[in-house]
Write a protein that binds this DNA or RNA. Structure first.
Lengths: 249, 249
DNA sequence: CTCATAAGTTAGGTCAACCTAAAACAAAAG
DNA sequence: CTTTTGTTTTAGGTTGACCTAACTTATGAG
């Protein structure tokens, strides 16, 4: 009754040694473990949404205990990936940020590739990418990117960092912020909730699509959208999760 | 000086929990860890080349200490993947064999895909596949296979198990066994030694190519091969690593 | 300014997968 | 039938990544 107590993902432990011995180009970074890459990604995301990353935020995002975060964060800052003051939260150092962006690039290129080259539905790529991002080499990622024409965003509209860690961090407004009568272009939606993605897809809400906010019911009620393919209504909560670019009305 | 003491592959530990909670279809197998998959693959390969797998053979193939193998083998036989008698070697159970073949399929489909869809050179796919095979879902493997026309062999000529674990285990003879004057078709070469593969490629020795053994120097000397694109000579050691199908003289 | 609460940390523990060194065993050689 | 040899196993240890429980620090309310 001890094992597998809280519906966890299958343990995928140490790297397979399988014939490792000879020349690894250690010119670059020492190749981080999968958990470490996940920590860095999480911290990057938290920093984007507001200053320093708190222990609890990291723990929550990774679904692990806060105590586990403390230890890992100490180790990572000893390795120079994080700047960390006790009780004060963490920030990525330049090295940490670079590593986070490399992982993010992997993740998003993989998502884009699965959709464009292998016909995956856009709500089915997140989990697959979440595993592959730790196993794919940079060379593979570059080939994938080249094969689909060096995409600049993933299928959900998230920007893809360049090979050398440059990313477009423009903050978009959400559909919830738009004025009635405003014409907007859908830019980005969250990639983690598959159900949400399927629903949005059924409504025709995808990055690139242009919609007009026709009406907004009072008291945070549903919004009515006009689009080429017809009208639709979305709740306020959903609207807040759709990032848009305002167009000249 | 303690860390990273013996040029090892980067440790890639437990699975990233990152938002795991809901419905996993546990209809099938419980998803094995990467090391376990490597053990099963190794045991499968050893069994193919001769009866039961000895502890030492497994250890050598995986580049780990024999002592480590004992423990793991006990665990795997408790899980019903291996049939194991102390001091007597191991064999795969049907369940273990099934799991080994699933991993083998992943590996070989990935290799084939990288070459045919992404333009990898055939000597550069092994290591990449070795990592990806533990991360890719069965659904992804099936999509890859479909995208390149359901291949039956990988780029080195190794047979790819079907989705439901059927594999062609025909034993081929090697070039070293052929008689002078014999016409043969290259069927398969080992996939692990990148240098060997590059060399074979430069000679034009690839699966599918037909060659005639024109001459064989005495005392295990080099063989002279006639092929469409010209002649070439190969040493006896190399010839023993090239599997062929004998054609009507 | 004290104190409750929330946030963070330390201490101690588990587990898988490896390791080395030493003991146990099987099989073949004297 | 004993001894040697080589393989296999046991014993005990390490590391990374997690856990729970208990303690510490920061902060906001009275």
């Amino acid at each position: 009754m001890t094992a597998a107590r809280r519906a966890k993902t299958p343990p995928r432990p140490r790297g397979g040694a399988t014939g490792a011995k000879g020349g690894g180009a250690r010119t670059r970074v020492e190749r981080l473990t999968a958990p470490v890459e996940d920590y860095l990604k999480a911290i990057y995301a938290i920093e984007l949404a507001g200053g320093a990353a708190a222990t609890n935020d990291i723990a929550q995002r990774l679904s692990i205990a806060p105590a586990s975060v403390s230890g890992m964060v100490r180790r990572l800052s000893e390795q120079g990936l994080l700047a960390y003051e006790r009780y004060r939260g963490v920030r990525l150092t330049p090295a940490g940020r670079q590593a986070a962006l490399r992982t993010l690039r992997r993740h998003r290129v993989i998502e884009a590739y699965l959709v464009r080259a292998l016909g995956y539905p856009w709500d089915g790529v997140h989990d697959e990418a979440e595993r592959l991002e730790h196993a794919a080499s940079d060379a593979l990622i570059d080939r994938m990117a080249a094969a689909i024409g060096e995409p600049v965003t993933d299928p959900h509209g998230a920007p893809i960092p360049s090979r050398d860690g440059v990313i477009d961090e423009t903050r978009h407004r959400t559909l919830a912020d738009a004025e009635v009568g405003q014409r907007v272009r859908i830019r980005r939606v969250g990639d983690e909730d598959a159900g949400l993605l399927r629903y949005l897809d059924s409504l025709g809400i995808r990055p690139g699509v242009v919609v007009t906010l026709a009406e907004r019911a009072p008291f945070d009620g549903p919004l009515t959208l006009t689009m080429d393919t017809g009208n639709c209504q979305v709740g306020a909560a959903l609207a807040a999760r759709v990032q848009v670019e305002h167009l000249g009305d």
